[in-house]
């Protein structure tokens, strides 16, 4: 089984549109949405949920005011500023349990958190693993790991060859959880200075974890000088630029219609994404 994760560093470069089109083009694959913070892929895949469950992760402190003697030790030891006036603010509380450990009268308990929800679904493109992190919750990395494990199980059960994952923006915890152990990272970038800056950081991350990478420049004709800069940079890093997708409103029109762009139009956008999938497949091997 081979797994490709689509990343970008910068948000909004077109990861989800590419993944949804891959869903329509690829045979024998399971799909995963690892952007559990702001999961959008389901809008295009229109899943029928088969199984779902709660994601319990982490904990928060709770002070029993009946037992509390207002000694203040908990407030003193808490490094997250989560305890004020002998009461815990659940948002900054990182669940470390330091207060619980030191409370001399056992007035503090640690409460488990329902940090989100996971789902395993059918779509007309194949099985789909996805999740939703609870609002303002922590532990998105652990939920990403759960989504990936569910996708692997689906692929194993159904004898599927590939997993295609939509990744989150950034380079931190949930991105690292999406990337480690994958066979290939497809990096979708755009020819803007911020896109280039962020691409360089996510390339650095792939190199750090020794994951092979492939680049796609989306909206390449928005700034062709910058696109050339990206190509030069990639050449220097030994990374193939597998496709250059032109700027075209058809991508948004397809989105409004709730369709992957390759099913909505046969424009150059579609041709480039088809080419990109072929290159991705070749690079993934198997």
């Amino acid at each position: 089984m081979r797994e490709v994760v689509v990343l970008s560093g910068k948000g909004g470069t077109g990861k989800t549109s590419v993944v949804a089109s891959f869903a329509a083009l690829a045979k024998g694959k399971a799909l995963a949405d690892c952007d559990v913070d702001a999961a959008d892929l389901y809008l295009l895949l229109r899943p029928t949920v088969k199984r779902e469950g709660e994601f319990w992760s982490g904990q928060v402190a709770l002070i029993d005011r009946e037992k509390c003697t207002d000694c203040g030790l908990c407030q003193e030891v808490c490094r997250f500023g989560a305890i004020v006036d002998y009461s815990v603010d659940q948002i900054p509380c990182e669940g470390c349990g330091f207060c619980f450990q030191v409370c001399p009268v056992d007035a503090i308990t640690m409460q488990p958190c329902m940090a989100g929800q996971w789902s395993v679904s059918d779509t007309r493109y194949g099985p789909f693993s996805h999740a939703r992190l609870g609002i303002a919750q922590e532990n998105s990395g652990k939920l990403v790991t759960l989504v990936r494990n569910n996708a692997k199980l689906l692929a194993e059960e159904q004898g599927l060859e590939y997993i295609i994952s939509d990744g989150p923006p950034g380079i931190g915890c949930p991105v690292i959880a999406s990337l480690t152990g994958a066979n290939l990272a497809l990096l979708v970038t755009e020819p803007t200075l911020s896109g280039i800056h962020d691409l360089e950081r996510v390339v650095g991350l792939c190199q750090y974890f020794r994951i092979p990478a492939l680049v796609c420049i989306n909206k390449y004709d928005l700034n062709e000088d910058n696109s050339r800069r990206i190509e030069d940079y990639c050449r220097g890093q030994g990374i193939e630029v597998a496709a250059k997708i032109p700027f075209d409103n058809v991508v948004t029109e397809a989105l409004v219609e709730g369709l992957p762009v390759v099913e909505y139009s046969s424009s150059r956008v579609t041709q480039e994404i088809e080419r990109l999938w072929q290159s991705t497949l070749a690079k993934l091997g198997g």
Binding site: G12, D37, Q137, S140, P169, G170, G172
Partner: peptide, 9 residues
Amino acid sequence: SPGTSCPVV
């Protein structure tokens, strides 16, 4: 940053 989890909060 984009998202809805700890860095945003």
